[in-house]
Design a binder for these strands. Structure first.
Length: 158
DNA sequence: GCCAACGTTGGC
DNA sequence: GCCAACGTTGGC
């Protein structure tokens, strides 16, 4: 018997100069590994909590208009991020090894690109999103959980 | 490009 | 285990 599980909700940040939602759109099967996460808390979310079928907002950071630009689905759960083992990769980490991988990634599949990005500026104005991790002062997590309430609130703003 | 906030590193 | 120094993130 299959145990149907409530999907988890996430927000995943990427700098569009490095990997944008359009890059994901153009990827084979509109699917791509989400590599390069090098933060332990984000790694733990990926490795321990992200499951196939979970949904995530795709967020563009460090760009002209930071904000949520679309929606993706987790289609492969955590496996070792091999870029950590490649000396030429910008994500190389000499302390990681194939025997004892330090970093993990998931595969994400494109679901939707919004007609208009939902900007950080607009998100900040919604009082219902008080407490949303993205809006916390000094927040630097590149992968963060979104509660069902937050998810619904944000969906209603699109 | 600036800089506040935060995470990581390493000496002790 | 503390904490100063350093590196990175990311909005502005």
């Amino acid at each position: 018997m299959t145990n149907k599980r409530t999907p988890g909700y996430w927000l995943m940040k990427s700098e569009p100069d490095t990997f944008s939602i359009d890059d994901l759109l153009k990827a084979k099967n509109q699917t791509s590994p989400w590599d390069g996460v090098r933060n332990y808390q984000a790694r733990n979310y990926i490795r321990d909590e992200m499951k196939i079928g979970d949904l995530a907002f795709f967020y563009h950071s460090s760009c002209k208009v930071p904000g949520i630009v679309g929606l993706v689905e987790i289609v492969k759960s955590a496996y070792p991020d091999h870029t950590a083992l490649e000396p030429k990769s910008p994500y190389y980490d000499p302390k990681s090894s194939a025997q004892n991988p330090r970093w993990y990634m998931v595969d994400v599949k494109f679901k939707q690109k919004y007609d208009e990005p939902l900007s950080l500026e607009v998100l900040k104005m919604n009082p219902k999103l008080k407490g949303f991790k993205l809006l916390n002062r000094g927040n630097r997590l590149s992968i963060l959980p979104v509660s069902l309430q937050e998810w619904k609130t944000i969906q209603a703003m699109i």
